[in-house]
Design a protein around this nucleic acid. Structure first.
Lengths: 242, 242
DNA sequence: AAGTGGTCTAGACCACCGC
DNA sequence: CGGTGGTCTAGACCACTTC
């Protein structure tokens, strides 16, 4: 139903096209296979070496290949591929795990920002916020409890459809998520939380608290999600900085 | 007739030097301040634009600055700076949090790799492993229980000093950690675990399971760490892939 | 010694932002 | 419109691995 505007469509760059071709090629090979050299690739595709390296950099960041100086570029172990960290919402996360996501809105409405929330969103206390509490299901089993605060000034409240991806709708309104700071810890479920998640009181849960930023560094979302400890795990790939 | 590098000390590249200078500059400015343009920087430092961009890319990945196409490069919000994800061991992790790390070895020795462990380390079952179980303390308070398997063929067993950083010693032996795949979930502590961590039985704990890889994609370490839920949280920054 | 990825240069044009 | 970051070229030399 969405009227896809021009800004959604963008002519792909050369290195993106090249990365897609190489991704196909890489996925059809075995781990630790040697890839073509950069000089072979620039010859084959008629681009400069910088473009080849930019494409390979994309694949490295996806965890698909790795470089060894003086030796070559190699196909990475698939173990690493699945765990590359991306910023996704609940729905996409579940689909990647092969589960069917669903939602149940527990409450929803406007509130004035409490000082603690306001600080994290870098707005004055009392500023209007949109708050949504949802129970999130995967294959019809309760999976997570989500409590989201959105800066009301940035979102068009009337048009939000809680059954669709929140990020997707915000992107259509020009609010593009670029980074998120997440804090993960473990907590014991309280009575009400346990009841919603169909767990015993005191069961361990993964608590993920997230502040999401636009490309301009402005925070626009604060979310706290409680995941069932027995059904959910958080997978990430970490690169050594140096 | 080139000058040889000494003792494995690497001469910093131009873009690393430039990044360090710019980092100083950036840290002395306020969030969302406009940085010099790329063309001003290449003029100022007498380098090419590619080198300037490579330096800025480092700062972007550290979360210190952000770009807006057609507008400029800006100082990022400090909220993001602290949470950049790096692969660190327990000791360094604690020091970054301003806590004094300590260790207590619970058990240590050689074992044959169980099939499940062998699969994750990509070695044949029964291969010799070094196993170390440690209680980790921060400011003299129990913080985590750590169970580490190392591929014995890759480490010089006699020389390991359990009071020093494991990664540091492995690096000295030529085993350099480059990536790690981590799985994080929440569990309730069992009786023995709770006793070690000075917690009530059933308390929530963060369980981090990690497989660490060398630059060549070879796994050499499998570790499982249980962090006290009431004292530890895992902080990460996520970039949107696009 | 030959070949690889890593760094670096000096240009060029494009897409986008703000005036 | 001028200025910005984004992309791209065609070279060059260096550090490292491999033989």
């Amino acid at each position: 139903m969405t009227a896809r505007t021009e800004n959604g469509l963008r002519r792909p760059t050369k290195y993106e096209q090249l990365a897609n071709i190489l991704e196909q090629r890489v996925r059809s090979r075995a781990p630790n296979d040697l890839l073509e050299t950069e000089r072979e690739l620039l010859e084959e595709f008629g681009v400069s070496r910088a473009t080849v390296r930019q494409a390979l950099q994309l694949l490295i960041r996806k965890g698909l290949v790795y470089n060894v100086q003086g030796s070559g570029t190699y196909v990475a172990d698939p173990e690493m591929v699945t765990k590359t960290l991306r910023l996704t919402g609940f729905s996409e996360d579940m689909r990647q795990r092969g589960l069917e996501p669903a939602s149940c809105v527990l409450s929803q409405g406007r509130t004035a920002a409490p000082s603690e929330v306001a600080a994290k969103l870098e707005i004055p206390p009392g500023e209007p916020l949109l708050r949504i509490r949802r129970l999130r299901l995967a294959d019809d089993v309760p999976m997570a409890l989500e409590d989201v605060f959105l800066v009301a000034a940035l979102v068009d409240v009337e048009e939000l459809d809680y059954r669709r991806s929140l990020y997707e709708q915000l992107r259509e309104q020009g609010v593009k998520a670029a980074r998120a700071a997440q804090t993960i810890d473990a907590v014991n479920l309280g009575a009400e939380e346990a009841r919603h998640l169909d767990q015993a009181v005191g069961s361990a849960a993964l608590r993920v608290r997230r502040v999401t930023f636009t490309g301009r560094g402005q925070p626009f979302e604060l979310a706290e999600t409680l995941y069932r400890g027995d059904r959910y795990s958080f997978d990430i790939m970490v690169e050594v900085a140096e």
